[in-house]
Design a protein around this nucleic acid. Structure first.
Lengths: 118, 118
DNA sequence: CAAACATATGAGCAATCGTTCATATGTAAT
DNA sequence: ATTACATATGAACGATTGCTCATATGTTTG
Protein backbone atom coordinates (compact mmCIF):
# COMPACT_ATOMS: atom_id res chain seq x y z
CA UNK A 1 0.00 0.00 0.00
CA UNK A 2 1.20 3.54 0.71
CA UNK A 3 0.17 4.54 -2.73
CA UNK A 4 2.07 7.69 -3.46
CA UNK A 5 -0.25 10.55 -4.36
CA UNK A 6 0.26 12.29 -7.65
CA UNK A 7 2.74 15.09 -7.39
CA UNK A 8 0.80 17.90 -9.06
CA UNK A 9 -2.29 18.49 -11.12
CA UNK A 10 -0.77 20.24 -14.04
CA UNK A 11 2.43 21.13 -15.80
CA UNK A 12 3.04 23.60 -18.59
CA UNK A 13 4.14 22.06 -21.84
CA UNK A 14 5.04 25.20 -23.76
CA UNK A 15 6.23 27.54 -21.02
CA UNK A 16 7.54 30.29 -23.28
CA UNK A 17 4.40 30.44 -25.36
CA UNK A 18 2.17 30.51 -22.31
CA UNK A 19 4.19 33.37 -20.85
CA UNK A 20 4.16 35.28 -24.11
CA UNK A 21 0.40 34.89 -24.49
CA UNK A 22 -0.18 35.83 -20.86
CA UNK A 23 1.63 39.11 -21.33
CA UNK A 24 -0.30 39.98 -24.51
CA UNK A 25 -3.65 39.04 -22.97
CA UNK A 26 -6.10 41.95 -22.83
CA UNK A 27 -7.20 43.11 -19.38
CA UNK A 28 -9.49 40.61 -17.76
CA UNK A 29 -12.39 43.06 -17.55
CA UNK A 30 -12.12 43.77 -21.27
CA UNK A 31 -12.70 40.14 -22.15
CA UNK A 32 -15.46 39.95 -19.56
CA UNK A 33 -17.09 42.93 -21.23
CA UNK A 34 -16.79 41.17 -24.56
CA UNK A 35 -18.39 38.00 -23.22
CA UNK A 36 -21.19 40.10 -21.78
CA UNK A 37 -21.77 41.78 -25.11
CA UNK A 38 -22.14 38.42 -26.80
CA UNK A 39 -24.37 37.22 -24.00
CA UNK A 40 -26.93 39.80 -25.05
CA UNK A 41 -26.87 38.42 -28.58
CA UNK A 42 -27.09 34.85 -27.36
CA UNK A 43 -30.85 34.57 -26.95
CA UNK A 44 -33.28 33.67 -29.70
CA UNK A 45 -35.88 36.25 -28.69
CA UNK A 46 -33.38 39.07 -28.45
CA UNK A 47 -31.85 38.19 -31.82
CA UNK A 48 -35.31 38.34 -33.38
CA UNK A 49 -35.94 41.71 -31.74
CA UNK A 50 -32.65 43.13 -32.96
CA UNK A 51 -33.18 41.82 -36.46
CA UNK A 52 -36.69 43.28 -36.58
CA UNK A 53 -35.60 46.64 -35.21
CA UNK A 54 -32.84 46.78 -37.78
CA UNK A 55 -35.65 46.79 -40.32
CA UNK A 56 -38.02 49.24 -38.67
CA UNK A 57 -38.60 51.18 -35.53
CA UNK A 58 -41.41 49.43 -33.64
CA UNK A 59 -43.30 49.60 -30.37
CA UNK A 60 -43.73 46.84 -27.79
CA UNK A 61 -47.16 45.93 -29.12
CA UNK A 62 -45.94 45.52 -32.68
CA UNK A 63 -43.05 43.37 -31.54
CA UNK A 64 -45.30 41.21 -29.36
CA UNK A 65 -47.58 40.52 -32.33
CA UNK A 66 -44.66 39.98 -34.69
CA UNK A 67 -43.01 37.40 -32.46
CA UNK A 68 -46.28 36.05 -31.09
CA UNK A 69 -45.23 36.58 -27.50
CA UNK A 70 -46.66 38.45 -24.52
CA UNK A 71 -45.92 42.13 -24.19
CA UNK A 72 -44.39 41.42 -20.81
CA UNK A 73 -41.83 39.00 -22.19
CA UNK A 74 -40.94 41.47 -24.94
CA UNK A 75 -40.65 44.30 -22.48
CA UNK A 76 -38.30 42.33 -20.26
CA UNK A 77 -36.02 41.53 -23.18
CA UNK A 78 -36.10 45.09 -24.46
CA UNK A 79 -34.89 46.13 -21.05
CA UNK A 80 -31.89 43.85 -21.42
CA UNK A 81 -31.17 45.36 -24.83
CA UNK A 82 -31.62 48.85 -23.47
CA UNK A 83 -29.24 48.28 -20.56
CA UNK A 84 -26.67 46.91 -23.01
CA UNK A 85 -27.12 50.10 -25.05
CA UNK A 86 -28.00 48.11 -28.14
CA UNK A 87 -31.38 49.80 -28.61
CA UNK A 88 -32.81 53.23 -27.87
CA UNK A 89 -36.42 54.24 -27.27
CA UNK A 90 -38.60 57.27 -27.76
CA UNK A 91 -42.11 57.88 -26.55
CA UNK A 92 -44.89 58.90 -28.91
CA UNK A 93 -48.20 59.17 -27.14
CA UNK A 94 -48.99 56.01 -25.31
CA UNK A 95 -46.46 53.98 -27.25
CA UNK A 96 -42.73 53.66 -26.89
CA UNK A 97 -40.85 53.07 -30.11
CA UNK A 98 -37.61 51.14 -30.13
CA UNK A 99 -34.80 51.15 -32.66
CA UNK A 100 -31.18 50.04 -32.91
CA UNK A 101 -28.73 52.21 -31.00
CA UNK A 102 -26.12 52.43 -33.74
CA UNK A 103 -24.65 50.80 -36.83
CA UNK A 104 -22.25 48.77 -34.77
CA UNK A 105 -25.13 46.57 -33.70
CA UNK A 106 -26.18 46.14 -37.29
CA UNK A 107 -22.63 45.18 -38.27
CA UNK A 108 -22.36 42.53 -35.58
CA UNK A 109 -25.70 41.05 -36.65
CA UNK A 110 -24.67 40.90 -40.30
CA UNK A 111 -21.32 39.37 -39.59
CA UNK A 112 -22.95 36.70 -37.46
CA UNK A 113 -25.50 35.92 -40.14
CA UNK A 114 -22.66 35.68 -42.62
CA UNK A 115 -21.01 33.02 -40.53
CA UNK A 116 -24.24 31.10 -40.02
CA UNK A 117 -25.11 31.19 -43.72
CA UNK A 118 -21.52 30.32 -44.26
CA UNK B 1 -69.20 45.48 -9.51
CA UNK B 2 -69.29 43.36 -12.63
CA UNK B 3 -65.99 44.73 -13.66
CA UNK B 4 -65.75 44.16 -17.38
CA UNK B 5 -62.65 42.18 -18.33
CA UNK B 6 -60.24 43.70 -20.80
CA UNK B 7 -61.06 42.84 -24.37
CA UNK B 8 -57.66 41.62 -25.62
CA UNK B 9 -54.03 41.56 -24.62
CA UNK B 10 -52.50 43.21 -27.60
CA UNK B 11 -53.16 45.15 -30.76
CA UNK B 12 -50.83 45.97 -33.62
CA UNK B 13 -50.05 49.64 -34.00
CA UNK B 14 -48.21 49.55 -37.31
CA UNK B 15 -49.88 46.68 -39.11
CA UNK B 16 -48.24 47.18 -42.48
CA UNK B 17 -44.77 47.44 -41.07
CA UNK B 18 -45.24 44.35 -38.93
CA UNK B 19 -46.44 42.39 -41.94
CA UNK B 20 -43.59 43.63 -44.08
CA UNK B 21 -40.99 42.73 -41.47
CA UNK B 22 -42.60 39.36 -40.87
CA UNK B 23 -42.25 38.47 -44.53
CA UNK B 24 -38.60 39.53 -44.66
CA UNK B 25 -37.73 37.72 -41.44
CA UNK B 26 -35.09 34.98 -41.92
CA UNK B 27 -36.18 31.42 -41.20
CA UNK B 28 -36.66 30.84 -37.50
CA UNK B 29 -33.96 28.19 -37.35
CA UNK B 30 -31.45 30.55 -38.95
CA UNK B 31 -31.87 33.08 -36.18
CA UNK B 32 -31.77 30.30 -33.62
CA UNK B 33 -28.49 29.16 -35.12
CA UNK B 34 -27.20 32.69 -34.87
CA UNK B 35 -28.18 32.97 -31.21
CA UNK B 36 -26.48 29.64 -30.54
CA UNK B 37 -23.31 30.87 -32.22
CA UNK B 38 -23.22 33.92 -29.96
CA UNK B 39 -24.00 31.75 -26.97
CA UNK B 40 -20.65 30.05 -27.46
CA UNK B 41 -18.92 33.43 -27.37
CA UNK B 42 -20.90 34.55 -24.35
CA UNK B 43 -18.77 33.01 -21.63
CA UNK B 44 -15.73 34.60 -20.06
CA UNK B 45 -13.70 31.39 -20.00
CA UNK B 46 -14.44 30.52 -23.61
CA UNK B 47 -13.60 34.03 -24.78
CA UNK B 48 -10.26 33.77 -23.04
CA UNK B 49 -9.63 30.40 -24.65
CA UNK B 50 -10.49 31.69 -28.10
CA UNK B 51 -8.37 34.75 -27.66
CA UNK B 52 -5.41 32.69 -26.47
CA UNK B 53 -5.76 30.17 -29.29
CA UNK B 54 -5.87 32.98 -31.78
CA UNK B 55 -2.36 33.74 -30.60
CA UNK B 56 -0.95 30.23 -30.43
CA UNK B 57 -1.85 26.62 -30.71
CA UNK B 58 -1.90 25.21 -27.17
CA UNK B 59 -2.72 22.04 -25.29
CA UNK B 60 -5.11 21.63 -22.38
CA UNK B 61 -2.33 21.80 -19.82
CA UNK B 62 -0.97 25.06 -21.19
CA UNK B 63 -4.43 26.59 -21.21
CA UNK B 64 -5.16 25.42 -17.69
CA UNK B 65 -2.00 27.09 -16.42
CA UNK B 66 -2.59 30.21 -18.49
CA UNK B 67 -6.10 30.74 -17.15
CA UNK B 68 -5.34 29.30 -13.71
CA UNK B 69 -8.15 26.79 -13.91
CA UNK B 70 -8.44 23.02 -13.61
CA UNK B 71 -7.77 20.92 -16.67
CA UNK B 72 -11.23 19.46 -16.33
CA UNK B 73 -12.93 22.83 -16.56
CA UNK B 74 -10.81 23.72 -19.59
CA UNK B 75 -11.56 20.41 -21.24
CA UNK B 76 -15.29 20.86 -20.77
CA UNK B 77 -15.21 24.28 -22.39
CA UNK B 78 -12.99 23.10 -25.22
CA UNK B 79 -15.60 20.49 -25.92
CA UNK B 80 -18.21 23.22 -26.31
CA UNK B 81 -15.91 25.09 -28.69
CA UNK B 82 -15.20 21.90 -30.61
CA UNK B 83 -18.86 21.03 -31.03
CA UNK B 84 -19.49 24.55 -32.28
CA UNK B 85 -16.67 24.02 -34.78
CA UNK B 86 -14.82 27.07 -33.53
CA UNK B 87 -11.65 25.16 -32.68
CA UNK B 88 -9.91 22.10 -34.06
CA UNK B 89 -7.54 19.72 -32.33
CA UNK B 90 -4.66 17.49 -33.24
CA UNK B 91 -2.89 14.95 -31.13
CA UNK B 92 0.87 15.00 -30.65
CA UNK B 93 2.00 12.29 -28.30
CA UNK B 94 0.17 12.52 -25.02
CA UNK B 95 -1.00 16.03 -25.66
CA UNK B 96 -3.82 17.39 -27.75
CA UNK B 97 -3.20 20.75 -29.31
CA UNK B 98 -6.05 23.12 -30.02
CA UNK B 99 -6.26 26.01 -32.45
CA UNK B 100 -8.92 28.20 -34.04
CA UNK B 101 -10.98 26.47 -36.72
CA UNK B 102 -10.83 29.31 -39.25
CA UNK B 103 -10.41 33.03 -39.78
CA UNK B 104 -14.11 33.62 -39.35
CA UNK B 105 -13.72 33.05 -35.64
CA UNK B 106 -10.85 35.50 -35.54
CA UNK B 107 -12.93 38.08 -37.37
CA UNK B 108 -15.84 37.79 -34.97
CA UNK B 109 -13.49 38.16 -32.01
CA UNK B 110 -11.86 41.26 -33.45
CA UNK B 111 -15.12 42.91 -34.33
CA UNK B 112 -16.42 42.30 -30.83
CA UNK B 113 -13.28 43.73 -29.27
CA UNK B 114 -13.66 46.73 -31.54
CA UNK B 115 -17.12 47.36 -30.18
CA UNK B 116 -16.00 46.93 -26.58
CA UNK B 117 -12.99 49.21 -26.98
CA UNK B 118 -15.33 51.43 -28.87
C1' DC C 1 2.09 -5.37 -18.82
C1' DA C 2 2.00 -1.74 -15.24
C1' DA C 3 2.56 2.90 -13.84
C1' DA C 4 2.33 7.76 -15.02
C1' DC C 5 0.35 11.26 -17.37
C1' DA C 6 -2.97 13.97 -20.68
C1' DT C 7 -7.39 14.43 -21.78
C1' DA C 8 -12.43 13.36 -21.84
C1' DT C 9 -16.75 12.75 -19.70
C1' DG C 10 -20.85 11.86 -16.54
C1' DA C 11 -23.19 13.19 -12.30
C1' DG C 12 -24.27 16.69 -9.18
C1' DC C 13 -24.81 21.34 -7.46
C1' DA C 14 -25.14 26.36 -7.18
C1' DA C 15 -25.96 30.19 -10.01
C1' DT C 16 -28.05 32.38 -13.86
C1' DC C 17 -31.71 32.93 -17.35
C1' DG C 18 -36.26 33.53 -19.72
C1' DT C 19 -40.86 33.27 -19.19
C1' DT C 20 -45.36 33.92 -16.68
C1' DC C 21 -48.30 36.20 -13.52
C1' DA C 22 -49.60 39.99 -10.79
C1' DT C 23 -49.10 44.62 -10.17
C1' DA C 24 -47.33 49.35 -10.85
C1' DT C 25 -46.55 53.50 -13.66
C1' DG C 26 -47.62 56.67 -17.19
C1' DT C 27 -50.48 58.70 -20.96
C1' DA C 28 -54.83 59.80 -23.38
C1' DA C 29 -59.66 60.21 -23.77
C1' DT C 30 -64.18 60.62 -21.80
C1' DA D 1 -61.49 61.97 -11.79
C1' DT D 2 -62.28 57.63 -13.96
C1' DT D 3 -61.53 54.36 -17.49
C1' DA D 4 -58.73 52.28 -20.96
C1' DC D 5 -54.60 51.20 -22.75
C1' DA D 6 -49.20 50.85 -23.30
C1' DT D 7 -45.35 49.70 -21.01
C1' DA D 8 -42.41 48.47 -16.96
C1' DT D 9 -41.17 45.66 -13.20
C1' DG D 10 -40.80 42.33 -9.16
C1' DA D 11 -41.44 37.63 -7.61
C1' DA D 12 -41.47 32.92 -8.68
C1' DC D 13 -40.64 28.76 -11.32
C1' DG D 14 -38.49 25.57 -14.48
C1' DA D 15 -34.65 25.16 -17.56
C1' DT D 16 -29.93 25.78 -18.63
C1' DT D 17 -25.09 26.68 -17.51
C1' DG D 18 -20.27 26.22 -15.64
C1' DC D 19 -17.73 24.30 -12.38
C1' DT D 20 -16.07 20.30 -9.25
C1' DC D 21 -15.27 15.66 -8.29
C1' DA D 22 -14.78 11.01 -9.55
C1' DT D 23 -13.84 8.07 -13.10
C1' DA D 24 -12.86 6.51 -17.87
C1' DT D 25 -10.02 6.49 -22.11
C1' DG D 26 -5.86 6.77 -24.54
C1' DT D 27 -0.71 7.30 -24.95
C1' DT D 28 4.03 6.86 -23.54
C1' DT D 29 7.66 4.91 -20.80
C1' DG D 30 9.81 1.63 -17.93
Amino acid sequence: MDKRPKARDCEVIQLEIVNKVRIQMPAKHKLKQLANLYKVFSDHTRIQLLWALERNEMCVCDLAVLLNMTKSAISHQLKVLRLAKLVISRRKGKNIYYSLADDHVKDILWQGLGHVNE
